[in-house]
């Protein structure tokens, strides 16, 4: 049963809320003036997508598969990540490598990024430090659903900026470019 909790007693003057409303407006006005006068200090304006924010080191971005010194992925297809994944977005097909002393490797390793909820459990569950989310990539996008199923070849040592750049796309599909965009001389972008 819902229980009524009595609020504080208010006087008739307080019940009009004039003072409170003005108080709120005053705070907004105060900040507006301060920000207009010191815009450079108080705002970090990033000209996205021409410039991109560098994410903190522990930001959970797109997954990458780490590699051993010999260039093979560290993953041994133990399925711990697939097991712990609450979104069930990891699909691994295991295989045997006859020449490798590690014996087992993932023939295919796919993450359906449309399903991923970025909880990072896969990173924690991995006994081999084979999967990390330290790429800092937050633009996980694609032109088809298939683009968003990241596979082993794509995730192997994924570095920031491996996704196709917008100018590459606009060069091939000028009709998609925003108005006034010069395909021949795109504006240089920083932050990559």
């Amino acid at each position: 049963m819902t229980q009524q909790v009595p609020g504080p007693e208010m006087t008739t003057g307080q019940k009009f809320y004039v003072r409170e409303v003005l108080q709120g407006l005053w705070i907004t006005l105060k900040h507006t003036v301060r920000n207009v006068l010191n815009a450079d200090e108080n705002f970090t304006i990033i000209d996205y997508p021409d410039v991109k924010k560098v994410m903190p080191e522990r930001y959970k971005g797109a997954h990458r598969l780490t590699t051993r010194p010999d260039g093979k992925v560290k993953c041994v297809a133990c399925m711990m990540c697939a097991q712990i994944c609450p979104a069930k977005c990891i699909t691994i097909e295991a295989g045997e490598d006859p020449d490798d002393p590690v014996e087992k490797y993932p023939v295919q390793f796919q993450i359906d990024m449309l399903r991923c909820i970025y909880c990072g459990f896969c990173v924690e569950a991995c006994p081999k430090d084979a999967i990390r989310m330290d790429t800092g990539i937050y633009e996980i996008n694609g032109f088809t659903r298939q683009d968003l199923i990241h596979d082993k070849a794509y995730m192997k040592d994924l570095k920031a900026g491996k996704k196709p750049l917008a100018e590459d796309w606009y060069r091939e599909h000028p009709e998609d470019a925003p108005p006034g965009y010069d395909v021949k001389a795109p504006k240089l972008r920083e932050g990559y």
Partner: peptide, 8 residues
């Protein structure tokens, strides 16, 4: 060997 062992 647990990660690569079929007995796991």
């Amino acid at each position: 060997d647990c990660p690569i062992c079929d007995q796991a």
